[in-house]
Nucleic acid binder design. Structure first.
Lengths: 135, 135
DNA sequence: GTAATAAATGAGAATAAGTCTCAATTAGTC
DNA sequence: GACTAATTGAGACTTATTCTCATTTATTAC
């Protein structure tokens, strides 16, 4: 996975195609259900790690501490997530670009104030989503 | 724990005193070590949940997906966390107040745009901390 | 202070997400 | 097609957190 050459294999294609088709963050359970037995669970976790190393997929935690993955599209802009506390749905959001810039400037200030090297940031919003409000 | 009355018990006092004394986020392991057997592990988790329900403690995830807790001081201002990817240390930070205000305004905009009800937000910075840079 | 009773504790069993192992399969190269 | 390295799949394993339940403690009423 590092110095040697990576192969284009079925499990990797299956996962990439699914993520491309769904175009939204998916949980492990969702991936397993949507691929209906075509991926062994251990393979899924391994393939996720491989694709993360390749920079094709990114992963983060759900509210229940389980893994959520999505395509790491280098063209799409930096974004964040809203988590619904009730139904667990996850929504992608973008901050307005001015705020995102100000955030990055502030991160740089914090970097020099604390003499650390910050390589990424993530804003998480916790909410009750539209569907759950109407219940 | 909800409609009935809560008691002031030793484990609850032990944990609150520790958090007050340390004044920094602590992992489960750190709490267990620092309290040296005075809290059963199962009691610790239960007491954490109780104190969260009481609004005295807040909890979040470490990089290794384990629980981190800290005092939820209603007087102290809203803050965020820096996680060191190498050593796992966690540092509290505050955004400059203008940015924090702008962030809250943007959150309100997102709220109305998506017709959802956002109840909290959290910014996480991932970094290499001062100590780890010098290694 | 003591009795009654509701709440909380402690020890260990149970759960489950994610990781690891290793023999079998597959992709890429010659 | 044969060779070699990479990958897969099945299931065992790990471990943070939750659960259970008998025992203990805190609180309230007297």
């Amino acid at each position: 996975m590092s110095s040697t050459n990576a192969s284009i294999t079925n499990p990797r294609l299956v996962l990439l195609e699914l993520l491309l088709r769904q175009a939204r963050p998916l949980t492990i359970d969702q991936v397993l259900k949507l691929t209906r037995g075509r991926l062994a669970q251990s393979t899924l976790y391994r393939v996720i790690n491989d694709l993360r190393d390749f920079g094709l997929v990114s992963a983060f935690m759900n509210l229940d501490k389980t893994m959520v993955i999505e395509l790491d599209d280098p063209v799409a802009s930096h974004h964040h997530h809203i988590f619904c506390r009730q139904c667990g749905s996850i929504t992608d959001i973008e901050l307005n670009s001015e705020l995102e810039l100000n955030l990055e400037t502030e991160v740089k200030r914090i970097e020099s104030e604390h003499h650390i090297s910050i390589d990424s940031h993530s804003l998480e919003l916790f909410a009750t989503c539209r569907a759950c409000i109407n219940d």
